[in-house]
Simulated scan of single mutants.
Amino acid sequence: MIRVLFADRAENWPRYKAPLAHALAQAGVRAEIVLPDAAAPDSIDYIVYSPMGPVQDFTPFTRAKAVLNLWAGVERVVGNKTLTQPLCRMVDDGLERGMVEYVTGHVLRYHLGLDATLAQQDGIWRHDDGVPPLARNRRVVMLGLGALGAACAQSLSGLGFDVTGWSRSPKQITGITCLDGAAGLRQALSHAEILVSLLPDTPETSNLLNAQTLALLPKGAAIINPGRGTLIDDAALLAALDAGQIGHATLDVFRVEPLPPAHPYWAHPRVTVTPHIAAESRAETAAQVVAENIRRSEAGEALLYLVDRARGY
């Protein structure tokens, strides 16, 4: 029987206990799930891991065959010098659908001008203000075409939006105009009426949206960032909002979380703050991903969603 260490925060164990045991049994894996301090590190075969959990030094886990991250992002662990075991990120259907719904909802909110409509309480009938264009005439740009970005892009394309995607490496997705490289980024930004950022956190993506790149967007563009807080130069975004270059920003992720009460984003009239709720791993579906990877490893098959350490994701 193999031993699986659940190395997440203690308060998350009750919601993972039954789904993880069920998923392992359904996958045909005979396993004992143990908690930190309940077993010697050198007896552990797999680590189910959260960056907020108690395990930060992987050196004692000499028998571990893989570290299975419960988060989609791996930036908090990929650079850990003690991590020599294979690392797998979480690609979870529940997490993906949550992100698709968040992004689609906020794109439609901007597209339809719902903020202004819902704020209209003065009794004035403003039919002459016009109607929004059809989705096919609204240009949406997706920065990042990984599993989450591609799913969001396809959802928006299915609604009729004119969707362009940009990624660091070339991609091909049916119905999406895919660009890459520095020239492709400039081209994508130059016509992004609504910009969605779902890039990973790497040295190459840090402050990708800065004073220079924000200036490339059409005046009044809207930004949605449920990706990583480090993608945006906060001072540059605030300046662009104040100048009217950016019409509004909906931000779900930040460099410091929780976002400090005194941060300018909270009070800015052109910023919507959401508390990192766009997508979260669901215990039932995440457990299935973990169990499948353990099954594959025990069967000598390739692990799913293996992280490329050099690229950082």
Results as ranks from 00 to 15, higher is better:
R3P: 00
K17A: 12
K17Q: 15
K17C: 04
A21L: 05
A23I: 10
L24T: 02
L24Y: 07
A25P: 01
R30P: 00
A31W: 05
E32Q: 14
I33F: 07
I33R: 05
D42R: 11
D45A: 13
Y49W: 11
Y49H: 14
P51L: 02
M52F: 11
P54I: 07
Q56N: 13
F58E: 01
R63N: 14
R63K: 15
R63Q: 14
A66H: 07
L70H: 07
W71G: 11
E75M: 00
V77E: 02
V77I: 15
G79A: 07
Q85Y: 00
M90A: 14
D92H: 11
E101P: 08
V103N: 05
V103K: 07
L108P: 03
H111Y: 02
L114V: 09
L118W: 10
L118N: 07
D122E: 06
D122F: 06
G123E: 11
R126M: 08
R139E: 12
V140C: 02
V140Q: 05
M142G: 07
M142Y: 04
G146V: 14
A151Q: 08
A153V: 14
Q154E: 15
L159Y: 11
T164V: 14
W166R: 09
Q172V: 14
I173W: 12
G175I: 10
G175H: 11
C178S: 10
L185M: 11
R186H: 08
A188F: 06
L189A: 11
H191L: 03
S197P: 03
L199M: 13
T205I: 12
L208N: 07
N210Y: 02
Q212Y: 00
Q212R: 15
Q212M: 05
A215K: 13
I224V: 15
I224A: 03
N225L: 10
L231S: 14
L231V: 13
D234W: 03
L237A: 02
A239E: 06
H248D: 06
H248C: 02
T250L: 14
D252A: 09
P258M: 12
A262Q: 14
P264Y: 03
H268G: 07
R270M: 04
V273F: 06
V273E: 02
I277W: 00
A278R: 03
A279P: 05
E280A: 12
A287D: 01
Q288S: 08
V290W: 09
E292A: 13
S297F: 01
L303G: 07
R311P: 01
G312F: 08
